[in-house]
């Protein structure tokens, strides 16, 4: 198991794909946080909950999104390029490969979330300070933001591996993850609120709640509920990978 984990970690580090994902994550965090920090009217970003939600909180969504893509690529790249064959020839116990990919992706994914939060805090604070606004977040808020974003991104990385293992095809997996987090969940379930309170318990919203962005849902509970989604996705990926043929 350790052997497979080390192999998967090397795979994640040895192409430029994940460096590219990481750069894109940083770029998006910078852009979105600066955009909101500088462009929103003062009355929208003066309260603590607003600052947390519309300035700093973007790190949770973006960290989760890019961590999920990292996890999805970790497995769909193998099917796309055929490396899944040598991988399974060396480790025919395919469940071990899936689990190793999950842990390796969670590790790198948590770094994605952590750094996204750190950048958002740094850049967001600078933006608010530049506009002469008082920053109402305290040390506990920052700590929760860092830990919550890291946890959400790690769990989403594992969801990405599970989904990728089920779908196998890279493009639909990536499009599906982006569509879910950026469109379906944010617009239809969250902002538009088509299905009432359900939006609070969707996996993307739970990722945000993990860093304290939902006043009605404790961060610990949010992490626990998100972990249930993760367990389901990983279990589905495990079953799909061990049962289906590789051609």
């Amino acid at each position: 198991m350790t052997a497979q984990f080390r192999a998967e970690l090397l795979k994640l580090r040895s192409t430029r794909t994940n460096l590219g994902l990481f750069s894109a994550l940083l770029g998006f965090v910078l852009f979105v946080v600066l955009l909101h920090g500088f462009s929103l009217p003062v009355e929208h970003i003066s309260r603590r909950s607003d600052q947390l939600h519309v300035v700093f909180g973007w790190a949770a969504l973006l960290g989760s999104l890019f961590a999920a893509l990292l996890g999805a690529l970790a497995i769909t790249d193998e099917f796309r390029h055929g490396t899944i064959r040598p991988t399974f020839l060396v480790t025919p116990q395919r469940g071990r490969v899936v689990v190793a990919k999950v842990w390796a992706s969670m590790l790198i994914g948590s770094v994605f979330g952590l750094i996204a939060a750190a950048v958002a805090i740094g850049v967001g604070s600078a933006a608010l300070a530049t506009r002469g606004l008082e920053i109402r977040l305290g040390g506990g808020d920052y700590a929760l933001l860092l830990v919550g974003c890291a946890a959400a991104a790690a769990l989403w990385a594992a969801i990405g591996v599970g989904l990728g293992a089920v779908v196998r095809n890279q493009v639909p997996t990536v499009v599906g993850i982006c569509a879910w987090l950026l469109f379906i969940e944010s617009l239809l379930l969250g902002d538009v609120g088509l299905v009432g309170d359900v939006g609070r318990f969707t996996p993307g919203a739970l990722g945000k709640a993990a860093s304290g962005q939902d006043p009605l849902l404790a961060p610990g509970l949010a992490v626990f509920l998100l972990a249930l989604y993760t367990a389901a996705a990983v279990a589905a990926g495990w079953v799909a990978t061990t049962r289906r043929d590789v051609v």
């Binding site: 052997a3 497979q4 192999a7 090397l10 795979k11 040895s14 040598p86 060396v90 480790t91």
Partner: peptide, 12 residues
Amino acid sequence: RNHLRALALAAE
């Protein structure tokens, strides 16, 4: 080299 190393790691 990294392709082979990843296989070698998995196979110990």
